[in-house]
Amino acid sequence: MGSYILKRLVSAIPVLLGITIIVFLIMAMIPGDPATAILGAYATPENVERVNRSLGLDEPMVQRYFIWLGNMLTGDFGRSYSLNRPVLDEILERFNATLILAGTSFVLCAVLGILAGVVSASRQYGFADKAITFTVLIGISIPSFFLGMMMILLFAVNLQWLPVSGMWPIYGDRTLWVLIEHLTMPALALAAVATGVVARLSRSAMLEVLRQDYIRTARAKGVPERRVIYGHALKAAMVSIIPVLGIQAGFVLSGAVYIEIVFQWPGVGRMLVNAILQRDILLVQGGVVFVAACYVLFNIAVDVAQSLLDPRIKT
């Protein structure tokens, strides 16, 4: 197992390099002079010159890439122009908030989604199945940002149960309970779509598995039905559910961008959108590479979980 994890980590290196290359190439698409793009059309020529040199933009592209990569490896992601502080500091601070939000949503979507899917499949065409299918359909069709806005209207403005937005109150203690209060709405709004997707997939994976010959074998042995479904069938269905959880983690991370905007959550997503609107290229570059790298590592964890479950995967 250890060697498998090591192998997966080693094989992640080219992927990570690929990610930096893709980001670098996309950023190279910026039309015109990057420094002008960063500083705006009214920048003085001296400033443009200075920025160009500080970005190493007078070098050829390949060299520029390696300089940028080398700097990142030493922890130097550059300096944010709009915030006037090191990019990495800003990212680390913001990523913490995103992790809390996205992590909670991910756990919610995995647990609720699989549960709903299994219940739905085991009562195919029954009332519970229909109710779940209907809810799921609404869940995957409603834009998360719209859902978030409607939740604010209902729970924060009308019912006044929960705070409107933010992660912490401006005044007052930062206790866990306060965090949960602030987290509830954004986490639920963010989890809605992913939960729907996981539930649908779990349902169809379960239905597929329940038709397999080894389920008939289990029944022929006299295994009680409950155990057939929650043991034999669910275990086999997890083989196709786990990779989808990995993909959904990416969707949750992506959806966090909208939710952070709607709920004023101080995370990486909101930072990135602001950085784009202010053309703070280094902040965008750094943020994208950092989050993508974390996602790659997460997916390795997913692969390892999969290999623990399924002995047919060569370790």
């Binding site: 990416g250 959108v273 993508a292």
Partner: peptide, 9 residues
């Protein structure tokens, strides 16, 4: 390997 929105952004 990118969460899709990062690429779009």
């Amino acid at each position: 390997a990118f969460p899709y929105i990062l690429l779009a952004l």
